[in-house]
Simulated scan of single mutants.
Amino acid sequence: MAATLKDIAQSVGVSLATVSRVLNYDRTLSVSEHTRKQIFEVAENLNYTKLKRRPAMPDKQLKIAVVQWYSETKELDDLYYMSIRLGLEKRSEQRHFLTMRTFQNDLNAIDPDVDAIIAIGKFSNQQVAALARLTPNLVFVDQDQLCHGYDSVVTDFQFAVDQVVDAFWAHGQHRIGLLHGAEWTTDKELEVSDPRLKAFRRTMTARNAYDPDLVFAGDYTNQSGYEQMKRAITQLGDRLPDAFFVTNDPMAAGALKALREADLAVPDRVSLIGFNDTTIAKYVFPELSTVHVNTELLGSTAVDLIENRLQTGRSTPQRVTVGTELVLRESTRSLKKA
């Protein structure tokens, strides 16, 4: 069962109003970054289910460096990566492994005696090579590095996007807009395009329905979602589609705000589906329909791959692809089954 605002407020020791405003990215609220971080982490943790414990490796406590490409502050703006990290840390605790976190690919912070590295996010070839010099036991989460010889845990984006388009299409919503993101690795050597854009273009083109005028690029933040939806409203006017797919939940929450300000009712005028199903999807208004990504499984699978590699001496790389589930809530009321 999902955590309530009251559960979170009691755990952190703040008011219900403070929790609600933080989870809705209200930057006018005067609250410390520490409290904000606590609220997000407690919200994520309270939604986790306990995994069955398995015996730890008997010989020694393994040291795993967790390299997060986001900064600690930016991680709060996109809870997807925080959720992966929390799932990874929970599985490591169950195995009695020691995890050491570093943010923004700070290699100087990594213990030289580390047994393995789990890299979360996107990394350039130069960064991958630098990590490999520290240990051959590498797992990448959310980036496919199988072709370079490294274990990888990824999401099936094509399947997820097909689910979204199918859902809209089944209810006669054929003009579908897209808000997507793009960003760079921390060393600025590699631009990382949104894989959901490629999947969306492929799926819509196959239906002779892809319209580049309905596609808007942002940077995955709440503010970007707000700005890009305002841009769509201004540019398209009466041609604004009645359905939008937004490629992460923070952007979708920002898009909801822009639609409210323009008096465009959700879902009556515009249906909206986000991506990742992070905590904020349940606390925005209206509640956000979204694609659920099992971030806990992504993180725990990375730990399992490390454990397998170290126990068996396996050198052949593996790629594990995790599926998704479309969760329909109030932002797509018309799509709900009767």
Rank of each mutant, 00 (worst) to 15 (best):
L5I: 15
I8R: 00
S15Y: 06
V19H: 10
V22E: 07
S32N: 08
Q38C: 11
L46M: 13
P58S: 15
K60E: 08
I64V: 15
W69L: 00
S71Q: 01
Y81M: 05
K90Q: 15
R91P: 02
F97V: 06
L107F: 14
L107S: 08
P112I: 03
V114E: 03
F123K: 04
S124Q: 04
N125H: 11
N125P: 08
L131A: 03
V139Q: 03
V141A: 09
Q145D: 01
V153A: 11
V154R: 05
D156M: 01
D156T: 06
V161Y: 02
D162L: 10
F168T: 12
G181Q: 10
T186H: 06
E191M: 14
P195V: 05
L197Y: 15
R201M: 14
A206F: 02
R207N: 02
A209K: 09
P212S: 14
V215P: 06
F216V: 13
D219N: 12
N222F: 15
G225N: 05
Y226A: 08
E227W: 02
Q228E: 13
A232C: 10
Q235H: 08
F245G: 03
K257Y: 04
L259W: 07
D263T: 05
S271N: 12
N276M: 04
T278S: 12
I280R: 11
A281M: 04
T290H: 07
V291I: 15
E296M: 00
S300T: 11
D304T: 06
I306A: 03
T312Y: 09
R314Y: 01
G323L: 02
